[in-house]
Each structure stands twice: as C-alpha cells, then as structure tokens.
Design a protein around this nucleic acid. Sequence first.
DNA 1: GGATTATTTTGCGAGATGGTACAAAAATCA
DNA 2: TGATTTTTGTACCATCTCGCAAAATAATCC
Lengths: 216, 216
Amino acid sequence: MVQKSKGPPIAAPEPPKRRGRPRAYEPDVALGKALDLFRTQGFAATSLDDLSEATGMNRPSLYGAFGDKRELYIKSYQRYREQARASMVEIFRADLPLRERLERIFASALAIYLSGETGPRGCFTVVTAASEAVGDPEIRAMVLDGLSELDKAFANCFRRAKEKGELADSADPVVLAQLASATIHTIAIRSRARVPRKELDAIVKGAIDVMVGVKG
Amino acid sequence: MVQKSKGPPIAAPEPPKRRGRPRAYEPDVALGKALDLFRTQGFAATSLDDLSEATGMNRPSLYGAFGDKRELYIKSYQRYREQARASMVEIFRADLPLRERLERIFASALAIYLSGETGPRGCFTVVTAASEAVGDPEIRAMVLDGLSELDKAFANCFRRAKEKGELADSADPVVLAQLASATIHTIAIRSRARVPRKELDAIVKGAIDVMVGVKG
DNA sequence: GGATTATTTTGCGAGATGGTACAAAAATCA
DNA sequence: TGATTTTTGTACCATCTCGCAAAATAATCC
C-alpha cells in the first residue's frame, strides 16, 4: 500500500538523486531473477556466473549489492517469504467460510509452486529445508520460522472456524493445522516431481474434505 | 534372509576367485558411505573428493565401480529405496490393527529420517525431489516412483482396514493414503530443519488420530 | 569546469571441480 | 616362471569456482 498523502513531497519511488554513477540495474528485479534461479537449481548448483548472467550484473556488482553468494541466497529467501506471505495474508484474514478459505489458500500456494518457465519449482522453504538447512544454522532458523509461520496461520484459521461453529467441539485446531501444513508440503514436493495439476488438486480436495469434516 | 540350504555348495559370499588385483574396498559398504554423503549434502554440494575420502576409494576406482557422479547418485538412491522398503514392507504386510500398523510405519520412517552422525537427514526421496528431480528426467521418474509406491502401500493398508470394519464406510482409502503420505513428507522436511522429535511424534499422533477416526 | 562520489568494467588469482591417462601393483592362469 | 587380467595410485587436464583489486565511467556538488 503506497500512501498517497497530500502533504509535502515525500520521496517515494522517485529517484532520490543519488550521487555517483547511476546503477545499470534495479536491485529489486535483480533479486527477483536471483530468486528464480535459486528456486529452480538450489544453492550449490547455481554459480555466480549463472546469477551474473540472469541478473545482467557482473560479479563485482552482485557482490557489492547483495554480498556473497550465501547472503544473496538468504536475501532471495527472505524475498520469497515476503511474496508468499503477501499472496496469502489477505485470504487468511478474510472472513470466509472455512472450506472456501482453505480452497483459496491452497490455490494460492499451488500457483506459486507450479509457476516457472522451465517447469514447476515447488516451495522455496521446502527446497531450502531439503538442502542448506542441515548445514547452516542461520538458514535453518529461517526455514524453521517459515514452517511455524504457516502452522500458526492455519491454527488461527481453524481456531476461528471452531469458534464460529464450523467445526466439531472435539476438533483440535493445532492438529488440523499440522495436517494442512502437511498437505502444503506434500504438494510442494510432488509439484517438483511434475505430478500433474489434476492429481495435486485431488489431494487438496481430499485433504479439505477430511479437515472440514472431522467429527472427532 | 540368507538361505541356509544343505544342497551343493552355492557360491554365496565366498570369493568367486576373481582374476586380477583384488579390490581394496567392498562395493556395498562404499555405496553405503556414498549414500550417507549424498543424503546429508545433496548431489551438487558433494564433491568427488568428499566421496573418495568417505569411501576410501580413489577417484578412478570410484569411476570404475559406479560410473560418474550422477550414476553413483542414482545407485545410491536405488539403494536407499531398497533399504527403506525393507524396513517397512513387513509392517505393511503384517496383520495388525490399523492404528498400530500406522504407528509402526511412522516410527520406522522417523528412525530413518532422524538417523545420521551430523544430524537428521530426512527422506532421500524428498531431498532428491527438492533438488535434482526438476532438471533430470531419469531421476525425476525414480522420485515419482518412490512417491507413488508409498501412496499405494498406504492405500492398500487403508483398504484392508476398511474391509475389516476398522474404518467407516464413507472413508476413502485413497484420500487417507494421501494424508498419510503427506504426514510422511512433512516430518521428513521438518526433521531436516531439526524440529525436535517430540514435535514430530505429536504430528504423527495427531495425524493418526484423524485418519483412524474419520467418520466421513 | 574541477573535485568528489558511486558504480561499472575488466581481469586476475588461488583453489576446487569432475573426469581421465598411464604406469605400478597384485592377483590368477598357463 | 612369465603372461594376463584387474585394480590401484599418481599425476594431470581443462574448466569452473568465488571473491577481489584496480582502473574506467558517469553522475552530483561546489
């Protein structure tokens, strides 16, 4: 949300008159390109040359703008999280019937997982968990945070649904949330193995049926 | 199960009098070491020097015995699948109450995922799906096979339980199987992020409660 | 215009990477 | 014993890796 105040001219997206030679790239789009590469190939399989070519920045510029490869990976991951969060937060917040809310969440997730020019790329949190998270404590902490953020959002969702009487009294919001997260994770993995969208939709539908229909 | 027949001497683990210089390694244990490395570090992050050191074979020997790095990865993955299958097949086959069967399956999976000297390593199928599967059709096919093998085993499990009256008539074995697989996948991912075992156990317990309690 | 500042560009360098050639070593076969 | 076969060990190659230093470029400030 960009504020559109009528007050004094606030420097928003206008160039803040930087000194020195102007950049030949936009950091935001460059980071997006880097994220694309990391999402498909992973950290180790992506070389600085790959990143340099994709972003249009040569290596020293990359280094100056984002730090070394690991820092760039971390910044890419943070950006992924922001994007993913942005695409879901309103659905989580909205006041919709439980089933519809879940349908929209999973549809939003699938849209992210199936996107990609060369093929589906899955969930970057899952990809990172499966690779760098074991050996790098800082990255692992971010992944853990990503996992629990989703768990919490789902738990909140089910808690509210229960309060509104959409679920049986015996239903446990935390357990249902873990099931919902598990469904997210399974479609993230399967999408990378190119399981056709129809099957993924069926998995989502089956999971939702169980989650909203739990009697105890 | 090694057969202990009384018939004529079958050349089993006895040296078949190979010609030429004898090997300084045992291919089976070397492959095991390679699998260990690949499971923790992934394909791209594991160098031939790493593999050479871990197996005790120098690079030419590695190459001669298993082919190039990719072939070694594929053979390692196949071996992982064999081991995982071996550790579960009897539980799937056994004639146990549904809940107990599920408990044992998940316990067996967790034992695999949490093992490792340097920390939990998760499921190699999931790790491979998250990395090499996108770019390598042959590897992707193996991963797909691994995913569907688990789905089918679970579906069979629930189908039999339903026939025995352990599940409501309205329960759908396929949907329940996908939920069980999803639970497997989520604990595989979380274990790599070092989620403590207690939480993983809780996730498994919650999922089982839902699966065996589904009324429809 | 000249000084200052920020960025780009070129290119380097030390080391790692996957893979291989070749000779020495160690066993069997004749 | 000597020929054959198989594996090992050393050394090497061409390529790629990440990161950085130095110089060139292009803007603003005075």
